[in-house]
Design a protein around this nucleic acid. Structure first.
Lengths: 199, 199
DNA sequence: CGAAATTCCAACTATTCAGTTGCACTCGGA
DNA sequence: TCCGAGTGCAACTGAATAGTTGGAATTTCG
């Protein structure tokens, strides 16, 4: 049978995403990744270099997919709130990805794919300004707020359990949370606009 | 000279907080902690048990200090917003602690000191309800929102750098962020009240 | 004082794990 | 059909690293 090195790489990246998402860079085991992928671990070193470089490759690969998946468009306050809602949904269907982002933030000195992400951030800020008329600085703050609220949810679910005693049906909990976040983002957007109008 | 086992324990907990805050449970090194504390590592095992148990002890010790440091009191919308602001300040002066919380969320199955924290959460929810008149469910959501916004800041500063190109003076950046968070929390509180009034 | 218990440490062990090597197999081109 | 480059793997290596041990110094208490 012919070799399919692209498939091998894909299997490794997928297994890596799963492993690193669960255990992080320091806690993730190269042997386990190779086993999960059904591939010899030497392939990892051949294709991606050392463990940390492989980790970055995994993050970057997941990142590429996510940036394309959710965009900010439309006009008015609800454009930003909608973005928050859709980002929430993405995060819900790809929890592994969001965890990866947190590991990255905690374990890596420098962010992965810095330039690509900076450009993407610029696009988002542009979209938010167009939708709301906010200043650049305010639009930045607003988007950081959205990202924090939405992505923080994954990691802080532990904390959530301390607030709501009965771990009710996951879907119910999620949709309640989604609603509150969208409401918060909308309120924050209006407040920011009002504040900048006052000057 | 006389022995001072309490001091030894304290030194270990402090060194542990520093190490685990930087590298997490999987990445933290027992040898390094012992060296930092200037104590033999065998003491760790004698006093706290295995590495993971020691990690929990570290988190719990930091937690105890933090829960006492910031409380929610007063009346009206600004009581909640003030709480957010003060929690932000605490988090800024104790960044190691907040990072520990994230490591805990990512690396541990169950939260440390669950009962203590649950009680503390209940107190907070009570304070928020008293200040705002919100329902229990809404007060919970609101507080989760505050915690996410404030604590998420530590880990997502990496992401922040992608939004604001010049890494301007840290203090400026922080106070701008603080202001926006307080504004957001205030707006969210008002929105939640308005929403519940409508029914 | 002197025995028992406690604190402390240097050195040790056993294991785990990132990264490597040597070799066999497959492919594409000349 | 032969050669060189690329792919794949089992077994290996060397360095960390969590956890232990035996014994010396110190304290406590009869």
């Amino acid at each position: 049978m012919a070799w399919d090195t692209e498939r091998t790489k894909r299997l490794l990246l997928e297994a890596g995403a799963e492993e690193f998402s669960a255990f992080g860079l320091a806690g993730g085991r190269v042997d386990r990744i190779a086993a999960k992928a059904g591939v010899n671990k030497e392939r990892i070193y051949q294709y991606f270099g050392k463990k940390e470089a492989f980790f970055s490759a995994v993050v970057e690969s997941e990142l590429t997919a996510s940036l394309a998946a959710v965009e900010l468009s439309g006009d008015g306050v609800s454009a930003v709130a909608d973005y928050a809602g859709r980002r929430f949904d993405y995060q819900r269907t790809h929890p592994a990805f969001t965890r990866l982002l947190f590991w990255e933030g905690l374990e890596l000195e420098k962010p992965v794919a810095e330039e690509t992400r900076r450009r993407h951030a610029q696009t988002l800020v542009g979209g938010a300004r167009k939708a709301t008329g906010l200043s650049e600085a305010d639009a930045q703050e607003l988007l950081i707020t959205v990202i924090t609220l939405v992505d923080g949810w994954v990691t802080l679910q532990t904390a959530d359990r301390l607030f709501s005693p009965p771990p009710s049906r996951r879907d119910d909990r999620d949709s309640r949370r989604r609603e509150f976040i969208v409401m918060t983002v909308e309120a924050a957007t209006r407040a920011a606009i009002a504040r900048s109008d006052r000057t």
